[in-house]
Computed example of a mutant assay.
Amino acid sequence: MKLSLIVPIYNEEQTLQTIIQRILEMDFGMEREIILIDDASTDATATVMKELDRLEEIRALFQPRNMGKGAALRRGFAECSGDLVLVQDADLEYDPSDIVKLLQPILNDDADVVYGSRFSKMNPQVLAYYHYLGNKFLTHVSNLCTNLNMTDMETCYKLFKADIIKNMKLEANRFGFEPEVTAKLAKTKSRIYELPIKYYGRTYREGKKIGWRDGFAALWYIIKFNLFTSFHNSFESDLPNKYRPGNLDH
């Protein structure tokens, strides 16, 4: 099997080299590729990426203009060649050592998708309360719409079987990717797992980019993609039948 790690990047010159080095030090027990997508950074991120692109496992892609995390991920999903696909942020909030654990439910054929939850007793860091409350609120509203019992819909660490995510019709360009992909997964028969992960949240001073406007946008995306988007408008026609709900024309 092959694992594709998709890394959307915007102004992460300070952390990109470190997070990629940590990933390269990991043994996932399978072939891997790391696809870096620069979202028209204004710092020296592109220079760092060009250096990393010399490594055999890494491909560097560059967006023509700043288009948002969701748009960068769409390009990464289209370009990747792995059997499994993982979203990896370019900062240091997530620990790549957790990836080995996230892989296990899929390798054991118990899951098709695995989310890493930041909100567990495994995470010792005291987080900013308002940020925590906002995430819990959005997850709760998402759960009401999807009927999924998740604890962290907004997490970065999402691992998919490639035939699911590559056949999903994604629209959101910024941070709306999280509620969109969750809503569309809920329309399938995908087996979804959620496992606790470590989390080292950074402040806005340290480079955190998501803001309150993205929170309001997430509410709209939850409503839009759950209530106003059909299964047929969520997936390409060649999504394998095993993921499709019953009573649909294939």
Rank of each mutant, 00 (worst) to 15 (best):
A72D: 01
V113N: 01
L73H: 01
S81A: 12
K187E: 10
G82Y: 06
E194K: 05
H131V: 14
D110H: 12
T188F: 13
C80Y: 03
M168T: 11
D110C: 11
V87D: 09
V141L: 15
A78T: 08
C156G: 14
L103Q: 09
D163Q: 11
F160L: 02
V85C: 07
P196Y: 08
D112N: 13
T151S: 12
D95F: 15
M153D: 02
K121A: 13
N108H: 13
K166D: 06
I165K: 00
G134H: 13
T151F: 03
K121Y: 03
K158F: 10
A162S: 15
K166H: 06
F119D: 02
I192F: 04
D95C: 11
A71D: 11
F137S: 06
K184F: 10
K166W: 06
E178H: 12
P105G: 10
C145L: 14
A162P: 08
I192P: 05
L159R: 09
L86G: 07
A128N: 15
P96D: 03
A162I: 12
K136M: 13
S120N: 12
K166I: 02
E79G: 00
L195W: 05
A78R: 10
H140E: 10
L127E: 14
M150K: 07
T139C: 11
E178N: 11
G176D: 11
V87W: 09
L73R: 02
E154W: 06
Y94P: 02
I192V: 15
L133E: 15
F175S: 09
D112R: 08
D98W: 04
K187L: 09
T146N: 09
S97C: 10
T139F: 05
K101V: 02
E154K: 09
V114C: 09
K189E: 13
L138E: 07
S190N: 01
A111W: 05
L102R: 03
L86T: 03
V141T: 12
I192W: 07
G70C: 05
G76R: 04
L138P: 02
H140L: 13
G134V: 04
L148Q: 12
D152Q: 04
K187F: 13
V85W: 10
D109I: 02
E154R: 07
I99H: 02
V87Q: 15
N135S: 14
L92S: 02
E93W: 00
N108R: 14
I165C: 05
P105A: 11
D163C: 09
V181P: 07
D163S: 12
P179K: 04
R75P: 00
C80R: 09
H140V: 00
F177V: 14
L127F: 06
E93H: 00
E178W: 05
K121E: 14
V87K: 15
L159A: 05
